[in-house]
């Protein structure tokens, strides 16, 4: 039964083959991120990245109302990608999900692969690619950066929710109509995406105001060759 404070997919929603499939996909993605993250981590950015993970853990606890009887919370993929880059960002979210599943019994153990795939891989990748696509806007100054953060976070949330729909299509209970599930999940996540966008924009804006050098997306602007270092 879903607990009030559950934030992620429980066990039992996906069948065993799909759970294993997404454990493999999530695992491969995290391994790739571990290899690629090194290029973005040094004495200055490593502590920042640890705090970004802790901050996302904290903000994920803050469910905000989106409809009567329905809430949403930060997923954090776009925020992590903008602040610490896509590879380190994916690791930040994956660590948050592992801590939540192992310590707080939130997010099923067999569903961990699916949750990592949606939030850590899809959420971070989409957030980063949208932010990268809006480079021209980012160059226009802090307002542009904040607007980019909003749009990237919104898109990241909606596409991550599509990840759940795809997973349910592969390994869900066929007794339930996928179209109905998809409409509800994606519809509600359009609303949650607005909250995600506001939180991401406020956070990125505040950090860019005091320490722009710690915002990965801005560093990428000055030294674009480092993006895939």
């Amino acid at each position: 039964m879903p607990a009030t404070l559950a934030m992620h997919m429980s066990d039992g929603l996906l069948d065993a083959p799909a759970s294993v499939l997404f454990l493999v996909i999530g695992g491969v993605g995290v391994l790739l991120a571990l290899v690629r993250a090194r290029g973005a981590l040094d004495d200055r950015t490593a502590p920042m990245a640890g705090l970004v993970a802790a901050f996302i853990f904290a903000v994920q606890m803050l469910n905000f109302p989106v409809l009567p009887g329905v809430s949403g919370h930060l997923l954090g993929g776009a925020l992590a990608a903008i602040l610490v880059g896509p590879w380190v960002g994916a690791l930040c979210i994956a660590i948050v999900l592992v801590v939540q599943a192992l310590v707080f019994a939130d997010g099923g153990l067999s569903a961990l692969g699916a949750n990592v795939t949606n939030l850590a891989l899809i959420g971070t990748a989409v957030g980063f690619l949208v932010a990268l696509g809006l480079r021209g806007l980012v160059r226009k100054g802090r307002g542009g950066l904040v607007a980019t953060a909003f749009v990237a976070a919104f898109a990241s949330t909606v596409v991550a929710s599509l990840g759940f729909v795809a997973e349910y299509a592969i390994g869900g209970d066929p007794a339930f109509d996928l179209g109905t599930i998809a409409t509800t999940v994606v519809g509600v996540h359009c609303l949650i995406g607005i909250g995600e966008g506001i939180i991401t924009a406020l956070t990125v804006g505040a950090i860019a105001a005091v320490r722009p050098d710690l915002v990965y997306l801005l560093r990428g602007e000055r030294r674009p060759l480092e993006v895939s270092a």
């Binding site: 879903p2 853990f57 606890m61 469910n63 989106v66 809430s71």
Partner: peptide
């Protein structure tokens, strides 16, 4: 900031099911 959000502001969080739970 993270400690204050998790340790204090979390009491103000909505206890309604989140988007995913709502759909399920």
């Amino acid at each position: 900031v993270a400690l204050v959000l998790a340790g204090g502001v979390s009491y103000l969080a909505s206890s309604s099911p989140d988007g995913l739970d709502h759909a399920t």
